[in-house]
Amino acid sequence: MTGRDSGRKAPALERLLLAPYTAWASLFILVPLAFIAYYAFTDNNFNFTLDNVLKFFTATSQVTNEAGQTQEVFTYLLIFWRSLKLAIISTIICLLIGYPMAYIMARASSRVQKTMVTLIMIPMWMNFLIRTYAWMTILQDTGIFNGLLDMIGLGPVHIIGTEAAVVIGMVYDYLPHMVIPIYSVMAKMDNRLLEAAQDLGCNNAQVLRRVVWPLSLPGVFSGINMVLIPSISTFYISQKLGNGKFFLIGDAIEGQYIANNLHFAAAIAFIMMIILLVGMAFMRKLAGRHVQGGV
């Protein structure tokens, strides 16, 4: 009886607690999105227009491919596709490196766990522009990495200015974003479940595949989200490690902003936002189904 009683009293207080966030989220999350849409669909005089959005889909450029042939391509679709491709590659690599790392961490003693979490987080406390700068020193043709290769008698590898350098930069910067969410899900996993699986005759690989992997999926999805999203839109990494030879969607938005084409910058941002929101919602739905199926 008392339980229901307090349950009835509580909402007033709780609504009060929720009020500041409701106001904040509407004002500073939802309204700004409306502004992006507003700018995307208006011209410099704030008259309605579809030009900006259409330009994203229709603008074309001549591109010469490696064979020397010239092709007509859709400028912004190509830029978006290239950004997405690099981001997906980086995300996959982050997952491949990060998943075992998170697993090892979750299996360790609690003291080691704590130390490792902090070790993974420390680089993020150092400015990311400076860390990216340091990668230039490592990856240059005459840099540290090639110096080490040289010492063991391997030829120099040209990395800086290539896709590989940009991907290394992204993986480096966002690896912690992958490890931490997966680890926090795995750390909460009930050890007895794994033991039970082993008792029931699973070998290590089977335990991993049948118990650990499905249970860790929420962490995996949130890790993918946290790596994919920032790596799609980065413009500093591509500028510095790509020697300015890569032009990604983040560069395009920043470029339009600098060129004072706010409305077109907003249009690119708007379209990218829609694509990502739909993509992520789809993924979350998928994740939801998987998680239910797994448990």
Binding site: A25, P32, I36, E254, Y257, M272, L276, L277, M280
Partner: peptide, 19 residues
């Protein structure tokens, strides 16, 4: 709504607030 700032690239969050 809580997820929006997480699924939006920071360049979009930045531009939208700036606008």
């Amino acid at each position: 709504v809580t997820n929006i700032p997480m699924t939006n690239p920071d360049i979009i969050t930045g531009i939208s607030l700036m606008l």
